[in-house]
Simulated scan of single mutants.
Amino acid sequence: MDTSDLRLAVLLASTRPRRRGESVARWVMEQARGRAATYELVDLRDHPLPLLDEPAAASTGVYEHAHTRDWSAVIAPYDGFVFVTPEYNHSMPAGLKNAIDYLWAEWVDKAGALVSYGNGGGLRSAEQLRTVLSCVGIAHVRPQVSLRNRADFDGYTATPDEHHEHGLAGMLADLELWAAAMRDVRAARTP
């Protein structure tokens, strides 16, 4: 399956001023370099959204506010996403949930993969995120990479090992296959 024309976003979910996710996202981008698909960083910090303030449900595609239309234009071109998410209080960051809730068609029938981090590897955040992604129609791949705050970081800098690199390579390969397959699904749904 040809994946050379795929466009995939590495979506950095933490918006905190001091965050470990920045080094995690950089690592993902470095590991993705040289793959057939194109990977681009999308940092939620660069797209500040107020708490969901659209009068109509996202599934209508009717966006009243410019910030929603701008966010739609950022997300719509991608075939899939690597969500780089921390775990805050046993859950995903509120900003990530809010950013997902703003849109519908821009997520539906696309592929997703998860890189999580936190004291417990961000596993609870990832599991909750999988539920949300399913609800917006993102086909998420089973493999994921989890980094633990104390073991896999030097302060705020990620220090993944060969095990993580191997896991990420397999996860990205699965993401690319699913993203290509979901592109065919989107084409089949188009009237």
Rank of each mutant, 00 (worst) to 15 (best):
V62Y: 02
E176N: 02
H67T: 10
F81I: 08
E54V: 08
H67Q: 07
D53I: 10
H140K: 00
A139D: 08
A66H: 09
S72H: 12
N149R: 10
Q144D: 12
A9S: 06
E22M: 02
T131I: 15
E127V: 08
D70V: 10
Y117L: 00
V42T: 04
W107C: 03
P143R: 09
H163M: 09
D152Y: 04
G118K: 05
V24W: 08
V115S: 02
P17Y: 01
T38V: 09
D5K: 14
Y117P: 00
S23T: 14
T159P: 04
S146H: 14
D79V: 04
H65D: 14
A139Q: 10
W27Y: 08
S14D: 09
H90I: 00
H47P: 02
Y156N: 11
N98I: 09
A57Q: 14
V84S: 01
S23F: 07
F81H: 02
A37N: 05
R19A: 14
N98A: 09
W27A: 01
F153R: 03
A180Q: 12
D70G: 06
A9I: 11
G170A: 10
R35E: 00
A73I: 05
R45T: 14
H67L: 11
P50V: 11
C135H: 13
P160C: 08
A181T: 10
F81E: 00
A73R: 15
R183D: 01
V115K: 05
